[in-house]
């Protein structure tokens, strides 16, 4: 009896490391959310007073609203572009055998592994060399570049387990390629597509460094946050940060509902 009780409440070294890591992963997020309600304009411990006035200030701020619109606009277009290009490529990589397949499958991941700052200055040099004016369009092009590898990676892991015989059965029953895709393949991969869409949106929504180089005069949310950070601490940063955090967390929640995130890894 004694032994069982001991076993149940025994906290091992492994547990301590885990608790420590988890606490420190959540701590920054908690701090930001908590202090966005603080009534003082500096971060003081213990928290003094609770207020919503910073939220009101942010939501009435035109700069913030226009940046939010830009971020959403960019995020939606980026996720559409990268899903189309990435999913097509993933079909090719998981279903067909061809020359140099291994080299190609690693090459397509390059934009994801190169440091963001180098990607940013490369794209800036490229756009300026071709005299393409910087705008939200250049931001969309740049974001899709590093989102496509994510789409390919995730879709590969989904499509590798795809049972091709279902599709063949549809074809045998007289469906053409488009019908087979529309009525057989698409419904099966739909949850993964929704998941990938949310993930690419979240990646684009939070991207700062590449955007910083290719944005020109307009603003996205991370660019606004960066500007505020450089000018010094203002309580509204906490509010904007909290709103950004809430949006990303919601996206991940939706992904988890549609397609179990675990299967993506």
């Amino acid at each position: 009896m004694n032994k069982i009780v001991n076993r149940r409440f025994k906290i091992s070294f492994l547990d301590i490391i885990n608790i420590f890591v988890i606490i420190f992963l959540m701590l920054p997020i908690m701090v930001i959310i908590l202090y966005s309600f603080s009534s003082t304009s500096t971060t003081v411990f213990p928290l003094e007073g609770f207020t919503m006035k910073w939220y009101k200030e942010v939501l009435e701020n035109r700069l913030f609203i226009s940046a939010l619109k830009n971020s959403v606009y960019v995020g939606i277009l980026v996720s559409l572009i990268s899903i189309i290009i990435g999913t097509l490529a993933s079909f090719a990589l998981t279903r067909y055998r061809f020359k140099f397949k291994n080299i190609i499958s690693t090459t397509v991941l390059f934009p994801m592994t190169i440091p963001a700052i180098i990607l940013g200055i490369s794209l800036l040099s490229f756009f300026s060399y071709l005299e393409i004016p910087l705008s939200l369009l250049t931001v969309i092009i740049s974001h899709a570049l590093f989102c496509i590898p994510f789409v390919i990676l995730i879709m590969n892991s989904q499509l590798i387990g795809f049972d091709v015989s279902v599709e063949e059965a549809a074809m045998d029953l007289g469906a053409n390629a488009i019908q087979a895709f529309r009525y057989v393949i698409f419904p099966i991969i739909r949850p993964s597509l929704v998941g990938v869409m949310m993930i690419t949106f979240a990646l684009s929504f939070d991207e700062f460094l590449i955007t910083f180089f290719v944005i020109g005069r307009q603003n996205t949310l991370p660019i606004i946050i960066w500007g505020m950070l450089r000018r010094g601490v203002s309580p509204t940063i906490n509010v904007i940060s909290t709103l950004v955090l809430v949006i990303s967390m919601t996206l991940i929640l939706i992904v988890n509902r549609y397609a179990k995130i675990k299967t993506f890894m």
């Binding site: 971060t43 990646l203 940063i237 940060s241 950004v244 955090l245 990303s248």
Partner: peptide, 22 residues
């Protein structure tokens, strides 16, 4: 896993800033 993913996908800029506050 969910906590880790939230941390991964929540704004990197915001998390660095939070560490400055801390």
């Amino acid at each position: 896993l969910y906590i880790i993913l939230i941390s991964l996908f929540s704004s990197y800029l915001v998390r660095v800033y939070a560490w400055r506050i801390i």
